[in-house]
Every structure is written in C-alpha cells, then in structure tokens.
Write a protein that binds this DNA or RNA. Structure first.
Lengths: 349, 349
DNA sequence: ATTTAGCACTCGTAATAAAAGAGTGCTAAA
DNA sequence: TTTAGCACTCTTTTATTACGAGTGCTAAAT
C-alpha cells in the first residue's frame, strides 16, 4: 500500500515538473534534464519508466521515439484541475490594476474595455480578447432627444452601465418640438429601468393594442425608433496584443500564423469559444482540442465573465498557446474581470 | 533619330510588360517568357539587352545572376508616374459602392467608416486602412445636456459630420436643472458652428476675462467640461482585411509577418505614413523604401483623404506589397474617398 | 549597325548521403 | 524496485551531386 502511494506521489511530481518546465522552455522535456533541474533522488531511468506510464495514461506525448515528453491536452487539463495552485497577484500588482481601471476616466465604454484589455495583455504577457454584449445590456437609465432639424432627431439612451447609445431618426413628418418633449417625458417615465429588448416588445405590443393616446400619436416615430434599435450591434469583439501570440515559438510557422490571423478576423468562432462553458464556474478554460473549432485546436482560451448587478456584460480573457502559465493567467483574468465589474458599478449610478 | 525612338518605345514596352507580369505572377520575369506572352517581334536575346539597360537605369533588379528581373521601387515609381493608365471602375461597380455607402444606415460614424473599409478591401483585394481625425473635426451643430443625478450630467455634442460625442461630467456642486437649461441655451447659441479647439480656447479665454455672467456662474462646470474635451481621442485608426496582406507570397515568411503585425499594432508609424504627402494631389502613393519607416520598406501604401465641406476628415487607403495592381487600386481608393465625403455630406444637415 | 543563335556560366532548388547528437526503451545487474 | 549500460530511433546538420532556369557574352546572320 505504501509503495503505490509513493509511486503516485512521484507520478504527480514528474507530471507537474514536466508541465512547468515545458511551459517555461517550450521544448520537449528529457528525463535527465528533470533529474538535474529538480535534483530528484532517483535516476533518469526511473523517471523514464514513470514517463512511460504517464504517457500510457494519456497525460504526456512523444513527438518521435527519441524526443523528450510534452504534455497532452489531457495532461494540461489534469494539471489545471487537480495540481495547479493559483498564483495570487501581489498587493502591489492589484493596486496598480485597480488604479488603471477604477480611477480611470472613461468617456466611452470602449475606453474602459481597452484599458482592461491592456492590463490583461501586459500582466499575462498574452494576447487579450473581449466580447461585450451591448444590446442585451442596455437597461434604460435616461432617454433624451435632440431636435436637429425638421427632418431629423437624435435619440439618446443612457444605460445603467454608463453606455450611451445614440440613434438618428429621419422622417418627413416629425412631430413638433413641444409634442416631442411630451413624448420624452412619457418614454422616460414609462421605460426607465427596462431592458432594450423589453422596450422593443413593449412598444410593439402597445402600438397594436394600447389605448394610451401616445402610442397612436407617435406611432410613426416609434416604428422608426424600433427599427433603429434593431440595428444596434449585438456584440462587440475587441482584442489587444496580437504580437504576443504570433511570437509564440509554437506558432513560428507561416500557415499556423495565417490560421490565427483568420480566426481573429472572422471573429465568430472565437467569440463563441469565449462565451461558452461558464456553467457554475466564473472562469472558463479551454485547452487545445477541447475547443470546438479546429482553428483553436492548438490554442488555449481562458476567459471570465464580468458583471454588473448580476447581469453578464461581457467576457474578457486571453488567447494563447496551450503551453501557458495557467496559474498566473487565471488569476489575472479573474481579477480583472472582477475589477471591471466594480469599475462599472462604482462609476455611475 | 528614328532608331533611338524605336529603342525608347521598346524599353517602355518591356518595362511595362515586366511590371504587369510581375504584379500578376509574383515571380521574376524571364526574357523568353516575355517574348512568348506578348508575342514580341524580336528575340529573347534582344529583350535581355534591353533588360540590362533598364537595370542600369535602376528600374529593374536581379535577385541573382540567373534569375529573371523584378521591378525596383524606382521602376514601380516610373510606371505609376508616367506609364500606368488608371483603370476606371465599371458603372455597375460604382453603383454598388454608392449603394453601400450612400444609402447605408449608420448609427455611429464608425459603422460608416467600416463599410468604407470593407468596400476598399473587397474591391482591391488588399488590406484597407483608415485614419479618422475625430477631435479636429468636431464642429458643433447642437449641444445637449442630460441631467442624470445630483452628481452627474452628460454633455452631448452633435457635430456637423454626424459624429456624436458624449461627455460625463461629475461634480459635487452641480447647478440646478433650470440653471443648466439656461446654460444650455447659452452655449448652443454661443458655440454653434465652432470647432472643438476654438470652443476650448474661447471658453478658457472668457473664463478669465469675459464680463458675461454665465462664465462666472458656471466656471466650475466649464472647467470640467474643458477637461473632458481634452480627453477626446485625437485620431482613430481602423483597418480591415489583415489576411489579405499576410497571405501575399512576398510576405510568406515568419519574421516578415511579425514585422507587419507589429506595424499594425503600434499604429503610430503607419498612421504617419498614411497622413503624409498630400501636397496638392488628392491621392498619395508610397512605394517601398519611399516610406520613411523601415517597417514598411517592402510595402506600398496608397491613400486618399476624404473631406466634408473642404475639411479633411480622414484618410482611407490600402496597405499592400509593392507589387500591387496600381491602376485598379488607385481608382478604388480615390472613388471610395469621394463617396465617403458625399455620404457624410448627404447624410446630415 | 542591329539582331539573334549558341553556349558557357551562375545560382537556386531538390534529392541523397553521411555523420552527429539527443533521448528513449529494454535488459540485465545491483 | 531501481538503475547502469547499451542498442536503437529519429532529428538536425552538413556536404555532395544533379538539374534546370535564365542570364551574359560572343560570333554569326541580317
């Protein structure tokens, strides 16, 4: 019994060392190297035996007969799930991040998001990516309306997140200014706190059935407004630090680089991968072939949702090689996502 | 005399053919190949003699003794300046572009610019790039102000270009709502038509010297407003179609790709190159080493300014290899820049 | 005087071979 | 159960050769 325990201990130690070493060096790890690096009290031959076992179990792989071992996706997965200890940020790092996000002035939502991307990229030394669910997170705080000329007015919707949406409405039969201000009072009292989707539905429904005179008087305008609302982009996808990923030794190959650049340009698959698998957990890690799309089969995506009042506003994370410093990366992504939520919370209302 | 004329004629024909062929095929052009492709009525040997002369003149170069010729930057320059005929867009193409830009609904300036980038990239099959001078092109059409709560108001500036800027102002001693509406009337009548920079200066000056009571009552608020105005991003840099340039055969090399990706990420140099050399002409062409920065020494940048009411709003163009179909590219870039100006003109006021 | 056929020469590319080196897997001894 | 020792495998590097595309030059043809 004691013997198998000892063996398990060793296996774990070897796997951990191989994963860590490979993450550092990006080149296959040899038995002899491990022994000398970690001053192991058993010989390279023993290490080789253990390595062979770990390979049988699917945690390691061989590129060819005489190469050292590298972790498989399953190996990384096991490391992440059961071995890795999250590497906390230092208080000074946390403070710096706080400064950059909480105290920052941001005129537009996008400025704040870019600061966050910047922090993630610099503190993980990986490419950072972000999806922001704009449309679904517009909860009306205030609506205003600017009369521009006889043919054109501008609607402005301030969301509780601090996001500001503006919509030009063009029509030949616009109501007069004083009528418009009645409308404005009405929609402000009627729509405050509601989500964009609910607003659309409510207006549509009331246009058909409501006895409230407003809906009849302004039906033309309201229809145009709904159209404009439909045009708001669902999602925004942002990224920073492309050169971090393109300079990884594992991507040091033209066709692999093309693949990555295509993935970034197409957006769709990458966005889907960023969004998926947050059941329960607040962080999502996709390693290599765990990713549903082929374009990311040699990448790792680590992402966390950031929230405001319990609503998911978006997802921020990194795109890197499977060989990435998981402990550190996870802490940074997690921390920034929390702070991003706080920044939004504290910034406005 | 007649002889030298004939020789000149031939030289021009050979240079043209080499440039065109190399642009098509991306591989060095051989004498024999030219003769058969263009059914020349003289022999490969003669062509070789002419090629040698063109090389002496600096228009062609040799990669090694036994390779065909490729154009030098000087060769492209000569071709562009004196030989190339601009290849007009077909009426149907023009119509399609018009549809995409003039008739398009755009909620935000950036949507329109992205449509333009999309057109340029698709019609030239090159990567498209754009610089938009935001701050310097905010000429006030209308200002509005939303009272959000005791601590916070939102200024909204609608520019004559259709651009909309919003600025949150946070202060503990905000004026009351009715006072604010007085301020609003005042700034609207006072600032309409003025440029952002002038506004800043005017307010600053009047804060110090004016006897107008408004400036004294609202000095606190106005100072915060100026601060917020200073924070507006000078320029926006956008691009589309990265994979168009990364898939060029001449960039089929990891370190060259890194170079390009760095250039896109750093922005600064690329933006400077996009902006420069419009003295007189409405289109700017930078070929290879004509570019002041090393990162673009094997690239060609073709750009045109787009304007509104004679003001330069920004620059749109392509970033490609020096081996690019100049005639076609120039027409597309030029046309889109004109239409973009028209789209802005027709869209708003 | 101009053009061109002919041929030597250059250089890149591909194929092949050989040698070196790193690292494993297995066997047999400790 | 561990490990020393060694054969074996596979990559990487270097050298060699052969091939071919294309030029440059010379001498002949127009």
């Amino acid at each position: 019994m004691l013997n198998t325990e000892k063996t398990e201990e060793r296996k774990k130690k070897i796997l951990t060392s191989i994963v860590k070493t490979y993450i550092e060096t990006a080149s296959p790890v040899a038995s002899k190297m491990l022994v000398s690096k970690y001053r192991l009290d058993f010989s390279p031959a023993t290490v080789r035996n253990i390595m062979a076992e770990l390979e049988d179990m699917g945690y390691l792989q061989h590129l060819h007969t005489s190469s050292g071992r590298i972790p498989t996706d399953k190996g990384y997965r096991h490391y992440v799930d059961t071995i890795m200890e999250t590497q906390q940020l230092t208080p000074s790092e946390k403070k710096k991040i706080l400064m950059k996000l909480i105290n920052a002035q941001w005129e537009e939502m996008e400025n704040l998001l870019e600061s966050a991307l910047n922090v993630v990229s610099n503190y993980t030394n990986q490419m950072s990516v972000l999806v922001y669910y704009r449309a679904r997170n517009i909860y009306v705080e205030k609506i205003d309306l600017i009369y521009i000329n006889k043919l054109r007015i501008l609607f402005i919707i301030v969301a509780d997140s601090g996001d500001v949406v503006h919509l030009f409405i063009e029509d030949e039969n616009l109501p007069k200014i004083d009528e418009l201000s009645k409308l404005l009072n009405f929609v402000n009292s009627e729509l405050k706190g509601e989500a964009l989707n609910d607003i659309k539905n409510k207006i549509k429904k009331n246009l058909i059935s409501s006895h409230n005179p407003f809906y009849h008087v302004f039906s033309n305008l309201l229809i145009l407004l709904i159209e404009a609302l439909e045009n708001i982009e669902e999602k925004a996808f942002l990224y920073q630090g492309t050169n971090k990923i393109t300079k990884c030794p594992e991507f040091n190959n033209v066709s692999v680089l093309h693949n990555i650049i295509d993935m970034l340009e197409k957006e769709v698959e990458l966005v889907k991968m960023l969004e998926s698998d947050f059941k329960g957990s607040d962080i999502s890690i996709h390693i290599g072939r765990e990713n549903p799309y082929q374009c990311a089969h040699n990448c790792c995506i680590i992402s966390a949702q950031y929230k405001l009042k319990g609503r998911v506003l978006g997802t921020i994370g990194v795109l890197g090689p499977t060989r990435l410093p998981y402990g550190r990366t996870v802490s940074v992504v997690k921390y920034v996502s929390e702070i991003l939520g706080q920044a939004l919370e504290s910034a406005l209302f």
